[in-house]
Design a binder for these strands. Sequence first.
DNA 1: AAAAATATATGATATTTGTCATGTATTTCT
DNA 2: AGAAATACATGACAAATATCATATATTTTT
Lengths: 229, 229
Amino acid sequence: MGKCEQCIIRKFSSLRALNKEELIKISSCKTSRIVKKGEPLFEEGDHLKGVFCIREGACKLTKLSSNGKNHIVKFITKGDLLGQRSVISDESVNLSAVAVNDMEVCFIPRDEIMDSFRGNPDFSVEVVRDICYDLKNSDDVSVNMAQKNVKQRLADSLLYMHDTFGEDIDGFIKVQLSREEIAGMVGTATESLIRMLSEFSKKGLIEVKGKRIKISSILKIQNVSDGIM
Amino acid sequence: MGKCEQCIIRKFSSLRALNKEELIKISSCKTSRIVKKGEPLFEEGDHLKGVFCIREGACKLTKLSSNGKNHIVKFITKGDLLGQRSVISDESVNLSAVAVNDMEVCFIPRDEIMDSFRGNPDFSVEVVRDICYDLKNSDDVSVNMAQKNVKQRLADSLLYMHDTFGEDIDGFIKVQLSREEIAGMVGTATESLIRMLSEFSKKGLIEVKGKRIKISSILKIQNVSDGIM
DNA sequence: AAAAATATATGATATTTGTCATGTATTTCT
DNA sequence: AGAAATACATGACAAATATCATATATTTTT
């Protein structure tokens, strides 16, 4: 199995603040795992025994809403850490994590993380910074969800998907979600979402090929998001 | 000025994890301040030089949305700490804080907080726990905003106000917000909000006297929130 | 206390969004 | 390959919500 010290992935997460000894210690007790597309990493209410480090692939964090729909709160991709919140605050997880493509993840047991958190202030500051960033984002999302209409929210979701996954060689967003999943992310009925996708498509804002979506003009989509239509 | 060691307020916040020495040190450099209803404590984009500890009163955290409306994200009340996020992650604040009634706040300079954060793991764990709790809540709010309709969201806001401020002697929620403010919190037009308030009132779910609102049946409001109507 | 400004309320109407029905395309299973 | 299941698409309509107009109540100012 690979060694944490040499793993490039950690450079992108708060793990970068760990020193060599800590990395070696973690390396010796971490486990690695493959998660296939569609499989859950954990589910809402689970109690995590450690933190996941995403080496490859991506997953969606979802929450079952009271109306029975699955809402995608955010995506976690290569290089991200997952589960710190739950591990540090010692509470069950609030969201489910499901792979949106094949993933390779490392698992670092709770005790290792907590030792470093309590013993290495650089690491704890990094971790908190990450969580603060998530909180800021989440607050922004709340405001957008409350104040924007469905069309604006779809524009936001498209931009978020584009930011998170990037483009393939043809310029399509490098992730394939069902219409239902996108509807859940936007917070609308699947039929409404489908209609809006074709409206965007007709207006030349996007190009749709099956599940693949290409943003024709970032600027125009941004304008929709800002209510300039 | 009062001493932090003897301040009961700190018992309710992460400051409880501080030891006597730290408290004495903070006590010597903290400042106290009165903020009148309607006055801002800080504004979106400000760079905070420290953390606020709410000794008395409450404030709303708001964000200006792209459609020009002020959205109330949450309330901060007596005993809460404010600004940790911004101070620890060393970023400008994301939200404005405006007093909803007369407040008395203590101000603790950044360096003091950071020294304790880096030097006292018990404190840093407490702080992170607080922030994690906020994040969990914020994610929940996002989902509710996206998936619930306006009526359900109004029910949520009423319950939140009730939880946060409690009841006065007549059973009315102990805070007075304008219809516009409530509309901003719910994420709807002011006229729509007014209509729904009178609908709730007609149905006997709430009692309205000017700006004062009484929840007649928590259970019924909870049912509305859950879509059981 | 009167005038002005602001907040609340309500009707009429337009727009947005959701729901139901139904058909077609695509994927999955055997 | 064919059948079954699932996903996507679209029309028709209903319900929810926003907008505009206007009236009244309340608060603030003078």
